[in-house]
């Protein structure tokens, strides 16, 4: 196995594209290294992108934020302005693994690992985040909800790397939240994950809403109907019930070691309501 740590995205993309065997991008490594050690993967090339400035930086851009794909969860938590604007996203990123893992794990890695249960992905989807992708043929942008296609399958072509995510500017009275269901209290994988991002007007009426769901289908979902159910309402019980029904309707889960179809579908609705209420409370104060 070859290890490279180039300084530029272009160089990294070139190396990945040139490798005839399995080539992998290393950010925090909290999934990749585990998969290599347990012989699930044995890549010929590992390209570490942490020496590339863009992947390791959080910066303000057009009133919003650009977050490097390899910025660690713990670093996001320490970024006061980001945390104020996107508390849900930051808390989702900080539910991944343990305290030690949070010192390494990244949004880029969490998405590109290709797990439907990734915690930060529903939050990125609810946030309307756009991935900035660099490949051998240059740079392109892709909405986060379009990046993952199926378990372990991404809409990235050979040599492409997610360099960063752009989060749009936040108006007043906007916030987000993320909740997941796990049988324990920590150190676990979401059985269902739910993120809600809300914007309210001065009167408290919801003017925009996005709902992201994880672990209930082959890939994390943007549930547009759940968002629509909240827009134009005061996010009251009736609207929440409608959003929960939309979330349940969007679920296409499987029975596996972490939960049943019935349970996941039920809990997706429960979490949609609970998450929306937290986002609402935060948006009122924002």
């Amino acid at each position: 196995m070859r290890y490279e740590s180039p300084d530029t995205l272009e160089a990294a993309a070139k190396m990945l594209a040139a490798e005839s065997g399995d080539a992998r991008v290393l950010a925090g490594g909290t999934d990749l290294l585990v998969q290599i050690r347990s012989e699930i993967l044995s890549p010929a090339l590992v390209v570490d992108i942490k020496k590339i400035a863009e992947t390791r930086t959080v910066s303000e851009e057009k009133g919003g934020f650009r977050i490097g794909a390899a910025v660690a969860g713990a670093e996001l938590k320490e970024h006061a302005k980001l945390k104020k604007a996107w508390p849900g996203l930051v808390e989702a990123a900080n539910l991944i693994g343990s305290t030690q893992v949070q010192g390494r794990c990244s949004l880029g890695g969490n998405l590109c690992n290709g797990s439907p249960a990734a915690d930060s992905v529903p939050a990125l989807i609810a946030a309307g985040a756009v991935a900035s992708i660099v490949g051998p043929n240059g740079r392109r942008e892709l909405k986060v909800e379009d990046v993952m296609l199926a378990p372990r399958k991404l809409a990235l072509t050979k040599g492409e790397i997610i360099a960063s995510f752009f989060l749009p500017a936040r108006p007043a009275h906007a916030s987000d939240a993320y909740l997941r269901f796990i049988p324990r209290t920590e150190m676990d994988i979401a059985v269902v994950g739910c993120a809600v991002s809300l914007v309210l007007d001065a009167s408290g009426t919801c003017t925009a809403a996005r709902v992201g769901l994880g672990a209930v289908a082959a890939r994390p979902l943007l549930v547009e109907d759940a968002g629509k159910a909240l827009v134009g309402t005061k996010v009251d019980e009736a609207a929440l019930e409608k959003a929960a029904a939309a979330a349940r309707a969007a679920c296409k889960p499987i029975d596996d070691k972490r939960g049943t179809i019935e349970f996941r579908t039920d809990v997706a609705g429960v979490l949609t309501k609970r998450t929306a209420l937290i986002a609402l409370e935060r948006a009122r104060k924002a």
Partner: peptide, 12 residues
């Protein structure tokens, strides 16, 4: 593995 064979963690 301890991820899906769920012994309680301290916070549980």
């Amino acid at each position: 593995g301890f991820l899906d064979y769920r012994i309680p963690v301290a916070s549980d």
